[in-house]
Design a binder for these strands. Structure first.
Lengths: 211, 211
DNA sequence: AAAACAATACCCAATATAGGGTATGATTTG
DNA sequence: CAAATCATACCCTATATTGGGTATTGTTTT
């Protein structure tokens, strides 16, 4: 494998220099250029054709999240490893949702940078454990403790079917029971969920992950 | 800090032995006991009071996911690091959703185990990069590319309001326009989404993240 | 400037849904 | 074994929703 060509976005000059030095230790890395923010990143991509991008998040003018979005508009594959001093929940999740490849805390840079670059190029997602922990919490939060509405199994089946967009006649057909029976169940479901229409029931069910 | 007390669940005897050896290299680790599956894990917790649990996923009788659930029922804090040979998307996500602390591929055990244990105890989430990558994809998939149904702004507003569970009369009130107008918009929305009821529209909207 | 689109508003009729009942057999629970 | 719960099924009526129209006023686009 040839040299790994890297672009760097970082507003802090000191860190830019030390990253440059860090990458210079090995001649498998080549720092093509570095910029103090993501302005014009689209043209940088064309101009330099990098293998990987290292990107700070908190930068003036055009920050890392915005930069990441711009990159992803034109290239969905190039690894973008985010760097940050802050274990900033919001930014981390936002970066990940926008397709960041990995997320390294600056405090771990000296020990992890080289490994991280290789991992990113091999399809992995280099991540400081503290970052990973935030991500995990985000996930398990998102299927957080669902309220228990004490629905019976049959009621859950019916609510599920309603939630799939079926009218109650369709539900009756699908489950092979009479319309009236579906109605009875639905009445009870509405009582338990405290809703008064199908739309509300579907909305509540999907938003609260009830089933 | 004293010795780190560890419980191990792993059905493969060979691996159990090699893990035991691996932990034995450093006297900061103490393997309290190991079991071929998670049966009786609740009483093991009481009996041994471990600092950390290492757990295989694929085990007979009571597997790692089920074991993890049982642990989390009685203790939300103890780190549980999952081990697996398979980069099995489903299991990984399921484990994480059930509160796994970290997730190490067995192929990385010899190089990563010791670090992983420390990271887990320090509140981090040790994760093989390939695992992390799956997790990230899971997250960004969940806010994936939304189809464009070419709704106008007004239509989006109205669909949003419907999706919040409002009837169209309520929508009319909220937006300060006549019922009939809401109706007209809704008709067009239904056409564009190709649905034929509020429930279907709400369902499609929430499931496909349309707004 | 003509054509297309967006947002507004109304008409009618057929169907669906919501909320109020009652009832029965089967199963689960105390 | 009695009581409670679950799943089934039906009745009635008022209201909501859907699908089919037409129409006016601006605003964009061509």
């Amino acid at each position: 494998m040839g040299t790994i060509k890297i672009l760097l976005y970082e507003d802090n000059q000191e860190l830019r220099l030390s990253l440059s030095a860090l990458l210079g230790f090995s001649d498998e890395f080549k720092l093509l250029a570095s910029f103090p923010n993501c302005e014009g990143i689209e043209s940088h991509l064309k101009m330099f054709d990098p293998d990987l991008i290292l990107m700070d998040i908190d930068m003036p003018i055009v920050n890392g999240i915005e930069g990441l979005k711009r990159v992803r508009k034109v290239d969905n594959n190039i690894p973008v490893v985010m760097l940050t001093v802050f274990e900033d929940n919001k930014h981390i999740i936002e970066a990940i949702q926008n397709g960041a490849t990995g997320y390294i805390l600056k405090q771990h840079l000296s020990s992890r940078l080289s490994d991280a670059i290789h991992e990113a190029l091999e399809g992995g997602a280099p991540m400081s454990p503290l970052v990973a922990s935030l991500v995990l919490k985000h996930i398990s939060k998102s299927n957080r403790q669902k309220k228990d509405y004490q629905l019976t199994n049959r009621e859950k089946e019916i609510l599920q079917s309603l939630t799939d967009g079926n009218s109650y006649k369709m539900v009756a057909n699908i489950l092979g029971i009479a319309d009236g029976t579906v109605r009875t169940h639905i009445k009870r479901i509405y009582e338990k969920l405290d809703v008064h229409s199908q739309a509300e029931a579907v909305s509540k069910t999907l938003k609260e992950n009830i089933i």
